[in-house]
Amino acid sequence: MIPVKLLLTGILAVLTTACASTQNPDPDSDKRELTGLYDYRIIDPDTDKTLSVTALADQWQDADVIVIGEFHGHNGAHLLEARLQSALYKLRPNQILSMEQFTVDHQTAVDRYLAGETGEEELIKEGAAWNNYKASYRPLVAFAADHHLPVVGANAPADIARCVGREGKQAIDGISADKQQWLPTNPLFSPPGYRERFFGAMGGHHGNTGDPRLENSYLAQLLRDNTMATSIERALAEQPGDQVIHLTGTFHSEGRSGTVAALLHRSPSLNIKVLSPVIADDPRVPALEKADRVKGDAVYLLYPLPDEYKSDDARNAAIAERFKQAPQPACD
């Protein structure tokens, strides 16, 4: 028979633990060390404090648009996206998922899947889903489908973006009438400072700012940014009061540039929050550099990815093969 004193002590311990769990649902929210590729740490850049997903959702529940920048294919980034989507839904269930990973000309395929008319393999084929769809984006789209939420294919049509990247502005000037519907107004709007940032990031690999290939690549980047901004704006107009969660590569959003700047140019009154990733130099003691603190309204630290190649020859051969196999659409 258990003594009454010990029994009462045990009950008190259970109650105390339960209260602590309720008050702090994320026991690792105050820790900084990263332990693997599925790990992440959300940081408030103003206070340097670590935030749980629940705390961030609570702070941002009133935002019109939440833009989550990602490193495509990073396990931790995609896990965070799915958890934040769920946390925000609990606070504000009128939610729209907007995705760079689907294009505006494949919206019908996305809608058919959400309506239960097609299966996942049909979505992947008909919607031209990215190769990492199942590993990275399936949980988010499935969550939207389960809760009857819209999913917006926000990006520019791939063939038009490729043509702009190959031929420049003339590809837009000569686009056929049936494809005009996919173009945003002012499709090549360029926010202040964005061109310099793009050239600074790409110039080391593609030559100097006089390289016409780099100039055209920048125009293709602008087309994607402005198309995504227009897609978000349209979604909010169609469902006023809803909250948009937009997923995109971090270059399109960090520092509130790219898509974010294009969206604010169109709708200056929008309350937009940006979450940006940073790869930790040292996962044991990850820290934010000064330059990292301006990348978003909050940032999240990620574990470093494995090296893709150790051999320069292997890397160069892979890049050459990738360009060789890239689709070459007929430009109008």
Rank of each mutant, 00 (worst) to 15 (best):
D26M: 02
F71E: 01
A109Q: 06
V110T: 04
K134D: 03
I160S: 00
A330H: 09
A261N: 02
S267M: 15
L37Y: 05
A115Y: 10
P268S: 11
A171C: 08
P212H: 15
G69A: 07
S217I: 06
P304T: 05
V110G: 02
R162A: 06
N131H: 10
S269R: 14
H206C: 08
D332E: 06
E122R: 10
R41N: 07
A82D: 04
N131I: 05
T16F: 09
K290R: 14
F251L: 04
A144W: 02
E33K: 12
K169Q: 09
A158T: 02
I42R: 00
A317G: 10
G193E: 11
T35E: 02
N75K: 15
E254W: 07
A237S: 15
P25D: 03
A158E: 12
H106W: 03
A326N: 11
A57H: 03
A318I: 08
P93A: 13
G174D: 13
S136R: 08
V65Q: 10
M228A: 13
G10H: 12
S136V: 01
P192C: 08
V14F: 05
G174C: 11
R315Q: 07
A317T: 11
P283V: 09
L149Q: 09
D242T: 15
N132F: 03
P192M: 11
G258M: 01
A156P: 09
L302S: 08
R92H: 15
H106S: 11
S276L: 00
Q59F: 00
G153H: 05
G296A: 08
A201E: 12
A144F: 04
D159Y: 09
L222K: 10
L97P: 09
V164E: 00
V164P: 07
S311C: 13
P3A: 14
A20T: 11
P45H: 11
D281L: 04
R224N: 12
S311W: 06
P187K: 08
Q95N: 14
A220Y: 07
S136Y: 00
P150V: 03
G76R: 09
D242F: 13
V151D: 03
E196Y: 07
L222F: 08
N155T: 11
T259M: 15
Q328W: 04
V164I: 04
V53F: 02
L305W: 10
G119N: 06
P286M: 02
E196G: 12
A317W: 04
A326Y: 09
S190H: 04
K310P: 00
R195E: 13
T108C: 06
V278M: 01
F102G: 10
T22Q: 05
P327A: 10
L222E: 09
I319R: 03
H246G: 13
L247N: 04
A128P: 01
L301S: 06
K5M: 12
E233R: 15
R224W: 15
V164G: 03
P327V: 06
S52C: 06
I175P: 04
A237R: 14
W182V: 09
S98M: 13
V244D: 14
H74M: 09
E122W: 01
I43R: 00
A156G: 10
